[in-house]
Design a protein around this nucleic acid. Sequence first.
DNA 1: GCGCTTGTTATACGATCGTTCAACAAGCCG
DNA 2: CGGCTTGTTGAACGATCGTATAACAAGCGC
Lengths: 208, 208
Amino acid sequence: MTSQPAFKRADPDERRASLIAACARVLARDGAAGASVRAIALEAGVSPGLIGHYFGGVDALVAATYAQVETQVAAALDAAVAAAGSDPRARLEAYVCASLLPPIADSELLSTWIAFWSLVRARPEIASLHDEQYGRFRAGLAALLAEAGVPAPALRRTALAVTALVDGLWLELCLSPRTFGEGEAAAIARGSLSALISTARSAGSGNS
Amino acid sequence: MTSQPAFKRADPDERRASLIAACARVLARDGAAGASVRAIALEAGVSPGLIGHYFGGVDALVAATYAQVETQVAAALDAAVAAAGSDPRARLEAYVCASLLPPIADSELLSTWIAFWSLVRARPEIASLHDEQYGRFRAGLAALLAEAGVPAPALRRTALAVTALVDGLWLELCLSPRTFGEGEAAAIARGSLSALISTARSAGSGNS
DNA sequence: GCGCTTGTTATACGATCGTTCAACAAGCCG
DNA sequence: CGGCTTGTTGAACGATCGTATAACAAGCGC
């Protein structure tokens, strides 16, 4: 029995990534209330002190986890759009539906996201992360809507409506997944998107 | 200086209502993380022990607060529908828009609601309260959609879409209110509702 | 193989958490 | 006014929170 090392030194970036991943799992499993230093450290298989060492505190780790999850989601959306080819309408549908299908519409990822939402009100740095994320999503959506023929005056309200639709479906997909059948949320989004953009195209700059 | 009473005995129902109101204020101000026995008791101007006395624990108080807020919202929606007269379309619009205008679209109430969402995953009793609430809202909406001429086969997906739309607008209205102008959220909902039901009416039982 | 650097651990500390309960006093009843 | 009921208080308890820090050891350079 040659005693094996009690721990191993990791590359700082890998260690940070591992802690962020553990934090995301804890947020998904127990919500924001369960994201304690000890719970995250246990999940990551390290000692509690490491979190302070790498992030300075648990709040900063949670914020870093938000940023990481958001980057991951944005990359998946971009990939879905790229894979959809060059047809404007197909690209738009890909952007919207990708949020509602695996791997984005994952139980763990959605739970993590709701935990972040619950922190927005009380934590200014989380609030600004949210504002940036929301703005990016809506800007990307507006660009695709414009390509798909939605006239400029209707762009803002259509983008806001579709964003709300996706967020709402996302929310319910997380809070009680059994509400929807396999892929039903994406199908609803596709149908609603169709209705919203055809109305926006014909109505032009109408005000309702 | 005749010494005035250090406290006064209250009617049990009034006391419970006062504690629930204090709990809602704390949830709105500090989120679910701040809803401690001591914070709520301080907000209500009573001693911490009283919460245990009346509700058995803080968890039960939070659940009771959820139930109370939900009842209040449902009553406001019903009142809005009743005030809208007998035109099916006006009644439907009233139901949808009431959620996005004062007094429902209130900063405190929305914050409280998000705090509840964040508890759904980790607390089964909160999850079942949510399922009931969501089901009631969607059933009410489906009934109004049917009155407004949405054919039965499209009822489920239209109700799900409109519910998601309202929830998504609600969410953003709470997380960063400055995104919307005065009444803009309601206007977007009205326009989207119009697009969704006219499509549902003409498409009939189509599958997209 | 040895020493040095430093990533990692484990403990300690004060604050706060939820809950419990003995003591107190508000307010009714005789 | 005096006694009694009981709503209310406030302290005490053990558990857990986040953070700081001293001791340890992994792994590299020599």
